[in-house]
């Protein structure tokens, strides 16, 4: 069986390779702390496998994460000059030489991922599923990255793995600490949940609610989902809290709402919040680094004029369709 953990180990190896070349890069003003940052990440990925399997304690990983956050948070994560890649003129020339061939590896990524996601769960070998159940798409993305790399090296006459590794390191250093921020936020979400932040917010949501009138209850549920998602960075964390405080007791039991409609539109109101928050770092902050946008809130700003009217539309849709 192909296990998703293999790909987490591969990411760990990749981080270690980034660390090994970062430590020798004299164009990086903070090359030693930067290398330590990537090396600690490289160790934390395979160590996590044992935490998930409950064969190792989780707290050392917590310490590792704090160390990683301290290096980044004190401005000691630097990056190299990125020299060594091709210039704009060279790329024009290469584009003419290779033509449409450069698209093939990029298009292989969605094709392979889609194959794994759709056919993967149906294949079994010797009575065992070929892919670890429920991780088919993540495995598909990992496999597609490897397949696309092999295809790319063959089509583009690249004979050394060092070339794509150096390019991958350049892009990873560009993204910098934003590459792990989404995981830190997931970890914060867990602490919030364990410490009872959700219950506290749920109590305040039901406290502001006037009783007996439908429209305010719909507004509190939808807007509450969006606001709580902005805080937590994740609509999945907001849903149980707001549903327990408002959605189920008031909208479904109290006003007799259509349960699937109330819950579906409530969740989608949360998604409007996801479009507005830096806490959803993988959607809103990572692309800032990937696309060289400078302003941390550039993506959020582009999304706000869609998110706000869409939230209003959700309130209207729920009011009209669910009752």
């Amino acid at each position: 069986m192909i296990r998703v953990e293999w790909f987490y180990w591969l990411i760990g190896l990749f981080f270690l390779a980034v660390a090994a070349s970062a430590v020798r890069d004299r164009t990086n003003p903070h090359r030693v702390p930067s290398a330590v940052f990537w090396a600690l990440l490289g160790i934390s990925f395979p160590y996590s496998s044992f935490v998930v399997a409950e064969t190792a304690p989780a707290w050392p990983l917590g310490l590792l994460v704090i160390a990683i956050a301290l290096i980044a948070g004190t401005g000691r994560l630097g990056q190299g000059s990125g020299a060594g890649t091709t210039s704009r003129q060279e790329r024009q020339g290469l584009a003419e030489r290779f033509g449409g061939r450069v698209f093939i590896p990029v298009l292989a990524i969605p094709v392979v991922t889609a194959l794994f996601a759709t056919l993967g769960p149906k294949i079994s070998v010797g009575g065992q599923p070929l892919l670890q159940p429920l991780s088919e798409t993540v495995i598909g993305l990992g496999v597609s990255a490897v397949v696309a790399l092999a295809l790319g090296m063959w089509l583009l006459r690249t004979h050394s793995l060092a070339v794509p590794l150096a390019e991958g390191r350049r892009l990873t250093e560009n993204i910098g600490w934003a590459s792990v921020l989404p995981q830190l936020l997931a970890m914060l979400g867990l602490v919030f949940a364990t410490a009872g932040v959700g219950d506290a917010i749920g109590r305040s949501a039901s406290a502001v609610l006037p009783s007996g009138v439908l429209l305010p209850a719909v507004v509190v549920y939808c807007v509450g989902m969006a606001v709580f998602t902005v805080i937590m960075g994740n609509a999945f964390a907001a849903f149980p809290v707001l549903t327990a405080a408002v959605g189920y007791p008031l909208l479904v039991t109290g006003f007799g709402g259509n349960a699937p409609a109330v819950f579906a539109i409530g969740m989608l109101s949360g998604y409007c919040g996801t479009l507005c928050t830096p806490m959803a770092a993988n959607y809103n902050i990572v692309p800032v680094a990937l696309l060289d946008l400078r302003d941390d809130y550039a993506v959020i700003r582009a999304q706000l004029p869609t998110a706000v009217p869409l939230l209003a539309a959700n309130v209207a849709l729920m009011y009209v369709l669910a009752f």
Partner: peptide, 13 residues
């Protein structure tokens, strides 16, 4: 994991 191949094809135009 897709960054090495993305970097490789970007390098080649």
């Amino acid at each position: 994991l897709v960054l090495p191949v993305i970097g490789l094809v970007e390098r080649n135009g």
